[in-house]
Design a protein around this nucleic acid. Sequence first.
DNA 1: ATAATATGGTGAT
DNA 2: TCACCCTATTATC
Length: 265
Amino acid sequence: MPEGHSIHRLARDHAAWFVGHTIGARSPQGRFDEGAARLNGARVRAVEAYGKHLVYRVDDDVLHVHLGLFGKFRGWRLPAPAPRPNVRLALTGPDREVQLVGPMVCELVDEDAIAALLGRLGPDPLRPDSDPDRAFAALRATRRPIGAALLDQAVLAGLGNVYRAELLHLAGVWPGLPSSALPRERFDQLWADAARLLEVGVRLGRIVTVPQSLSGVAPSRAGRGDRHLVYGRRSCRVCGGAVARPVIAGRVCFACPVCQPVAET
DNA sequence: ATAATATGGTGAT
DNA sequence: TCACCCTATTATC
């Protein structure tokens, strides 16, 4: 689940449930006992997402969470079930509790550390202050394949393997194209699609890139097997041709050779 | 019951 | 480029 849309959705929900309130915190797993003790009884000032990073400002501390591939938050209206022993962190507000399992990162840091971390991120299409020109400049500055550059969070923050495949398909660009060769108009479309589809992802809680004009149903009603154009598919949702699976940046990238003809030069 | 897999990222080589 | 870390779900014996 966790590409940028999931993280922004969590930030939105957790902000609504916890900001302005004093929270209870504990670490049933025990691996975050010290942090939970500091958070327990503290007041949440803000919850924000930057790319795939979640940042909670709690009193004078900063809680930094990165879900990685396996991390999950589950949430309940109180009363919540007793946390299983693998829950790294449970946060309880006035009427909600969330439980975090399997995160790659769950740490308390200070403002300097979080500023340094966030300073290494490229622009996040979901944040209003983000500057697409920065991402374009970064893309033009490397000869790595565009399919590799799009997963680099220092280039553009928030995309994962699903959005990479889907956005390149929509742009008609083969993932092996050298990043520096990406035409500006293709980038502009890619950025606009990224912002639009990440927003859809936040709203629906899942990635849906198949337009209603193609499927005949609203994205919110798209069935399990009909949410993606190429990702996870054997045949292209648009042309029906066989989907290729080149490995780029160490991960399988789904792509349609027919619909994505802007090829390696 | 066990294995393979997954939407991520780091650090060593 | 590879090994490795974290967990849950699905597929396969």
